[in-house]
Amino acid sequence: MEFLEVSKKLEETDLKEAEEQLGISFTNEFKEHYLKYNGGYPVKSFFLWPDDGAKTRINHFFSIKYDGFSRFETAYENLFITEQILPQGFLPFAVDDGGDYFCISILPQFFNQVFFFDMHHYDPGWIEEYVTLISESFKGFIDNLVDE
């Protein structure tokens, strides 16, 4: 996998600072990816949905600590703390062209699984309407990125 226009390379201490700042813990797969690629555009920019073969184009991955197209910390604070759109335990790491979010779970029962948050169907009282499990792991999500 290759990413373009990534932000400044992260060190493990940078990830630790982000975790402490936000009061969260990243999964090991997520950390490994971000130590290699800090945000940017995946060259294989489409997520291939495993159930029906549909594709969703990823606009970009958020960067951590350093400015990029969007910062992870800003997205997390806006979506979880300020606007309270995301439920606790879901970390937004990428966005598609329509403003929908790809999130990794840090909840024990869904740990390291990736979910798609369809903001066009957002309903705070009915999470099933806008949240879909799309990968059993962060690595599985990355492995399902394909060319157009």
Score class of each variant (00 low, 15 high):
residue 41 Y to V: 14
residue 6 V to R: 01
residue 90 F to G: 00
residue 11 E to S: 15
residue 119 M to Y: 07
residue 118 D to Q: 13
residue 86 L to W: 01
residue 65 K to P: 08
residue 49 W to V: 06
residue 94 A to V: 02
residue 59 N to H: 08
residue 110 F to S: 12
residue 79 L to W: 03
residue 99 G to I: 09
residue 148 E to K: 05
residue 81 I to L: 08
residue 14 D to H: 07
residue 120 H to S: 15
residue 32 E to C: 09
residue 34 Y to N: 00
residue 88 Q to C: 09
residue 8 K to Q: 09
residue 61 F to S: 00
residue 54 A to V: 05
residue 49 W to F: 07
residue 80 F to Y: 09
residue 80 F to C: 05
residue 148 E to V: 04
residue 138 F to R: 00
residue 122 Y to K: 09
residue 72 F to T: 05
residue 133 L to T: 01
residue 98 G to C: 10
residue 126 W to H: 13
residue 22 L to I: 06
residue 103 C to H: 13
residue 90 F to K: 00
residue 42 P to T: 02
residue 1 M to I: 14
residue 88 Q to M: 09
residue 135 S to A: 15
residue 16 K to D: 11
residue 43 V to W: 15
residue 20 E to L: 13
residue 144 N to A: 13
residue 34 Y to F: 14
residue 145 L to N: 05
residue 31 K to A: 15
residue 62 F to Y: 13
residue 95 V to E: 08
residue 131 V to L: 08
residue 138 F to W: 03
residue 24 I to R: 08
residue 47 F to M: 03
residue 89 G to M: 01
residue 102 F to V: 07
residue 54 A to D: 11
residue 145 L to H: 04
residue 23 G to I: 12
residue 103 C to S: 15
residue 134 I to G: 00
residue 133 L to N: 02
residue 111 F to Y: 15
residue 71 R to Q: 13
residue 102 F to R: 05
residue 118 D to C: 11
residue 120 H to G: 14
residue 104 I to P: 02
residue 63 S to N: 04
residue 102 F to Q: 05
residue 83 E to V: 05
residue 50 P to N: 12
residue 76 Y to L: 07
residue 109 Q to Y: 11
residue 59 N to I: 01
residue 64 I to E: 00
residue 4 L to N: 10
residue 3 F to H: 01
residue 118 D to E: 12
residue 41 Y to H: 15
residue 78 N to V: 13
residue 87 P to L: 03
residue 140 G to N: 01
residue 75 A to N: 06
residue 98 G to Y: 14
residue 47 F to R: 01
residue 75 A to S: 10
residue 122 Y to D: 03
residue 83 E to D: 12
residue 39 G to T: 08
residue 140 G to L: 05
residue 62 F to H: 07
residue 2 E to F: 14
residue 88 Q to I: 01
residue 15 L to W: 06
residue 33 H to Q: 15
residue 147 D to G: 15
residue 135 S to F: 03
residue 76 Y to F: 13
residue 94 A to K: 01
residue 98 G to H: 15
residue 131 V to T: 15
residue 41 Y to C: 10
residue 7 S to V: 02
residue 88 Q to S: 13
residue 29 E to Y: 08
residue 47 F to D: 03
